[in-house]
Design a protein around this nucleic acid. Structure first.
Length: 269
DNA sequence: GCCTTATGTTCAC
DNA sequence: TGAACCTAAGGCT
């Protein structure tokens, strides 16, 4: 679940639930207990996301930074809440709803300076209005590293994960191992614009859908399919299955420890 | 029920 | 490059 669109969706939800009112902050598991005690009962000012990082601003130098990692997650329910199930790192309780956080890679209290330093290291986020895609292009256009690896580098581009990487490269017919410096500025601008649109759509509907209407299996007559991540995709996790456009079997390889999927025919460039 | 896997990152070697 | 982090779902028996 946790690519950038998920975190932006959570930021919106948490903002709607808690912003502008006092909130209870607990750590039933204990690992966040000391920080939770400092926040408990104070105002929740706002929530925002940058890439895959989520920030709960409770006040000056009182910012909870959450990174879900591979399998962290939030669950929500209405008050009154039941006893925590499993290891709940952080529990927020507002007027109408409560939110539990389990299994995050990071859940920590940061000062404003620490947040600024962290965000300084992140590349532009397609889901943020203040993003500057030129900054990413400066890195990409000077790099011999593959565009596939660069798209996952959060210092180059913040928020894209393995699904968006595979899908956006497919949609633009780009071979994953193309060096960044060979991508071309125009193609980069198209990829960025596409990420802005795809990820905004993902944040809105809560899943990753990347297949254009004309390639929808329902329309083309191919058997309908849905990956277990819940959306409709061209190549992600479709190893060996026919490409939705040209029927070539989808290829798989491991690249820097991450799973990579592509169509060797559609992505020959 | 047990095993594998995962949309991620950091750290040790 | 590999392990660790530590959760849930899916596939298998």
């Amino acid at each position: 679940m946790p690519e950038g669109h998920t975190l932006h969706r959570l930021a919106r939800l948490h903002h709607e639930r808690y912003a502008g009112r006092p909130v209870r902050v607990l750590s039933p598991q204990g690992r966040f207990a000391a920080s939770a005690a400092l926040l408990d009962g104070a105002q929740f000012e706002r929530a925002e996301a940058h890439g895959k990082h989520l920030f709960h601003v409770h006040g000056p130098d009182l910012v909870v930074h959450v990174h879900l990692g591979l399998y962290g997650g939030f669950t929500e329910s209405e008050v009154p809440l039941e006893e925590p199930r499993g290891k709940v790192r952080m529990r927020l309780i507002g007027r109408t709803h409560g939110t539990d956080l389990r299994g995050p890679t990071r859940c920590e209290l940061l000062t404003d300076d620490e947040v600024a330093a962290l965000r300084e290291r992140l590349g532009p986020d397609p889901l943020r209005a203040d993003a500057d895609p030129e900054r990413a292009w400066q890195r990409i256009s000077r790099s011999r590293t593959s565009i596939a690896a660069l798209l996952l580098d959060q210092e180059v581009l913040a928020g894209a994960g393995n699904v968006y990487r595979a899908e956006v490269l497919f949609r633009h017919g780009v071979a994953p191992r193309t060096p960044g410096r060979d991508l071309g500025r125009q193609r980069w601008e198209l990829i960025w614009a596409d990420l802005v649109e795809l990820m905004a759509h993902g944040a809105k509907i809560g899943r990753i859908d990347t297949v254009r209407p004309e390639h929808d299996p329902e329309v083309t007559g191919r058997a309908p399919r849905q990956d277990r991540h819940g959306g409709e995709v061209y190549v992600y996790r479709r190893t060996g299955q026919p490409c939705l456009v040209c029927a070539t079997p989808v290829q798989f390889a491991e690249l820097s420890g991450r799973n990579l999927y592509w169509c060797p025919t559609c992505q020959a460039r």
